Amino acid sequence: MRAINATNQLLTSQERNTMRKWVLEPGKSGQDALVMKEAPVPDPGPGQVRVAVKAAALNYRDQIILNGHYGQGVEEETIPVADGSGVIDAVGAGVECWAVGDRVISVYFRDWVDGPPPTDRLGFGLGSPGENGVLAEYVVLDANRVTRMPQSLDFVHASTLVCAGLTAWTALTEEHPVTAGQMILTLGTGGVSLFALQLARAFGAEVIATTSQQTKEGQLRQLGTVDVLNYRTTPTWGENIYASTGGMDKVVNPVGGDAMTQSIMAVGAGGEIAVMGLFSAGDAPLPLPVLMSKGASIRGIAVGSSKALVQLVDFIDQHGITPVVQKTFALKDAKAAYTAQASRDVFGKIVIDMTA
């Protein structure tokens, strides 16, 4: 049984004083840095809310942070992972926009409300060095670091929207927004690419996808792609796509620099390559004359604003989109979740179910 006490907190019948959390310890890297600890349940201060976290979704970014390759190392004990969903179970003084019992998801960046990213104060986001994330049973966040989760999704699926879902949304909707009948190319089968595929289909666009594994081709077609190219067996995939279609209106490239040459070859006249890849920088010089001759552009994507996240939540509800989740793990098995997320065989999101 649950009840609300005099301090505006949602309590279980046996009030908990401690919680489990995973932390990254300074001076370590890899899974040796990931340690589970018990800690007091935190209380929200003025302008803050406490969230009972129900699910946390992993991104490739979490692998980079774990291995110390995210621009700066972990200098103090830090709770990892940016993407979480849960229930507000306590609110601090002055918070009027949220109430105990509200179902919410986390907001990736602190100061990006709308418009272009404020590069002077953007920071690294939740779960990065210097800013605690959500891989804990309870977290305290500023009231503007959460937003309503989709009514149509459970906690596991809702947790996947925060980074991968929002990155795909920003790639598809800003600067050169996708419209019905356009042709979109998505690269690989990571979280951003699968979200881009699902969202583009909901916009009425046609989608071509790439993969290196034949076993994934059928899965991509089930999600609605009109064609799938294997970039291992067809290294000139971009040239092939351009020859057969006349060029893509948008290329969503979460892979990185090594895929930029063929992305440029695939994009059509006036099209856009949205790039957010952290995998590789690429060494070969880019065919910029080809890009210029097409009047196409390259745009960097840095997740998205909190306003864009609200728009994504509404779109998910309106179109009944269910994010692709490959597997869930219990909180105690977070290390196994990290291992699964790093696998080349992953298709969809890896989520830690905090209630399991």
Rank of each mutant, 00 (worst) to 15 (best):
A180K: 12
E217A: 11
L166T: 04
G188P: 02
L229F: 14
D227A: 15
I184T: 11
N230M: 08
R201T: 11
M183E: 09
R221M: 15
N230P: 06
T167P: 02
F203M: 10
L194C: 04
F203H: 13
T167D: 01
L220Q: 01
R232G: 09
T234M: 10
Y231I: 05
G218T: 11
Y242S: 11
L199N: 10
G165Y: 08
L220Y: 03
G181A: 08
G188S: 04
T173V: 06
D227L: 04
L197C: 10
Q213F: 13
R232V: 13
Q213V: 13
T210P: 02
V207E: 04
T189M: 07
R221C: 09
N240Y: 13
G188Y: 00
T234W: 03
G218V: 02
K216A: 06
T236F: 14
L223T: 02
T179I: 14
Q182A: 10
L166R: 02
L229P: 01
R232P: 04
A180F: 11
Q214A: 15
G238A: 15
H176S: 09
W237L: 14
S244K: 08
Y231W: 06
T210I: 03
G191M: 06
T225R: 00
L194S: 11
G165F: 04
V178E: 07
T173A: 02
T225Y: 08
G190C: 02
F195Q: 01
P235S: 10
A209D: 02
A243G: 13
G246I: 02
Q213Y: 15
G246H: 05
T234D: 06
Q222D: 15
G188F: 03
E239C: 07
L197S: 05
R232K: 14
S193L: 06
L161H: 11
L199A: 13
T179P: 09
V226R: 04
S212V: 13
G247K: 01
S193M: 06
G247Q: 02
F195L: 12
A196I: 03
Q213L: 15
E174Q: 09
K216S: 01
G191D: 05
L194I: 15
A196W: 11
E174W: 01
Q222H: 11
N240S: 14
N230F: 05
T160A: 10
V162L: 11
T236V: 15
G218Y: 05
G247E: 09
Q198F: 07
A243C: 12
R232E: 06
S244M: 03
T170S: 15
A164C: 10
A209K: 00
S212I: 02
H176T: 06
L229I: 14
V192Y: 01
A171S: 09
L172K: 09
I241M: 11
T234Y: 07
T173P: 05
I184Y: 04
A168K: 01
A202L: 13
H176P: 08
T225M: 07
E217Q: 08
L161C: 05
S244Y: 13
Y242E: 06
